[in-house]
Design a binder for these strands. Sequence first.
DNA 1: CAATAGTTTAGAATTGCTCTAAACTACTTG
DNA 2: CAAGTAGTTTAGAGCAATTCTAAACTATTG
Lengths: 139, 139
Amino acid sequence: MGKAMRENGKAIQRLREVGLRPTRQRVELASVLFKGEDRHVTAESLYEEASQLGLRISLATVYNTLHQFTHAGLLRQVIVDAARGYFDTNTGDHQHFFLEDEGALIDIPGDQISVAGVPTPPNGLAVDRVDVVVRVKRA
Amino acid sequence: MGKAMRENGKAIQRLREVGLRPTRQRVELASVLFKGEDRHVTAESLYEEASQLGLRISLATVYNTLHQFTHAGLLRQVIVDAARGYFDTNTGDHQHFFLEDEGALIDIPGDQISVAGVPTPPNGLAVDRVDVVVRVKRA
DNA sequence: CAATAGTTTAGAATTGCTCTAAACTACTTG
DNA sequence: CAAGTAGTTTAGAGCAATTCTAAACTATTG
């Protein structure tokens, strides 16, 4: 039994757990995304990568799948750039460096950074999330 | 002498100070933006507002002007939404609530919130800015 | 293993924004 | 104060990222 097959098995299980039907496309994308370390992708970059690997998945499906995974809690969307959307396989408590020159993200562990003094949200609203983006540039 | 005229006088002075030629369009937009309290606009919302006021300015000019004002330090760009760009007339040290349901921004004074433990940026990079976005939703 | 509910897809459509190049205008100089 | 000119504005085309559409496909259920 090959490595890809084992990865697919894990992916199928993972998709079932969150209530997503394990279609070929979702299984393949999940395998790519959750194979190794945490990573940051855009729809285009993931589509490109899948294509390189010989996976036949349309760009529309990549978009759909990224959003479904996000709703299911498998991914988290990171908003740092007006031009494109990033998705992060690390859904835990953490923040980001954003390298403005190259459009890359680097995780900052959540226990490393701390935000104090967040005021109570206005009338009838509740805090959903506190995002910290440390924008860095070539020195 | 009318109020609009006085506003325009102030706007012209302000534009001269930052080295921008005070054209009719820039003066009118500056008057609208810096008339009263701090505010958050999108290109579309400002274009809409200017149109309502009877100011004849193209959308392209609104985009150009917002970027020029930002470069000149009169505005600051806020990235909170993948879909659209916001501009803030408050260029001082502060952070934001982002009301996800209605796409609105509310300032949080800079001295109220504090971020500790930002790690040293990687190799050859320097911190440009630390942005905190408190995303809030209907409770 | 057929029915069906959910999924995928190509391509069109939409959105927010930028570009282009021709017309216009604020400032300078004679 | 009349050009000259450098900078500005504009309509409309163009572009990139994303979403929509509706027809074909497929995983699951009975």
